[in-house]
């Protein structure tokens, strides 16, 4: 029996290649006097995607021959961590980058199985503070303005 879901990856790659080719075909063309005997800006990405499509065809052939096992779904910590990246985005944009880091680090510690809340809290507060000091005082890097950094920078 053919395992249909293993073809999801080649299908995705093929669609991706066609989308890139379609977008590349919309790119502007330069006048002959600039390009001369060289290539238009669209040519190289299109060439790459044609190569990609050939390789995808070979991949499909390999899958058809070898029938690799479908990959099981990930556990909650993996999906949870990705959701935490979104939480980090929202908190950084609307509050402060360091609030985002603190919240995400704390939740990540807990999500990954740290049962001692005080350890998670300490990790989430001390690490960004130390990194902030290092980058701000030693490497002289200014961080984006937010609720906490406004207090620090004044």
């Amino acid at each position: 029996m053919i395992k249909k879901n293993i073809y999801f990856v080649p299908l995705f790659l093929a669609i991706f290649s066609f989308v890139v080719i379609a977008v590349a075909l919309q790119l502007d063309t330069s006048p002959e006097m600039i390009v001369g005997d060289s290539m238009q800006a669209r040519s190289f990405p299109i060439f790459l995607m044609i190569l990609n499509l050939i390789l995808v065809a070979v991949l499909i052939l390999q899958f058809y021959k070898n029938q690799p096992n479908p990959i099981p779904l990930e556990k909650f910590p993996t999906w949870g961590s990705m959701i935490l990246f979104l939480v980090f985005y929202v908190l950084t944009v609307f509050t402060d980058m360091f609030i985002g880091i603190f919240v995400v680090m704390f939740l990540m510690c807990v999500l990954w199985g740290e049962k001692r809340i005080w350890v998670a809290l300490l990790t989430a507060s001390i690490t960004p503070a130390l990194i902030f000091m290092l980058f701000d005082l030693v490497l002289k890097i200014r961080f984006p303005r937010g609720i906490l950094t406004n207090i620090y920078y004044g």
Partner: peptide, 12 residues
């Protein structure tokens, strides 16, 4: 513990 190490990697 990975639960401590990888959040630090995230911050870095």
């Amino acid at each position: 513990p990975t639960a401590i190490l990888w959040p630090i990697v995230f911050a870095l």
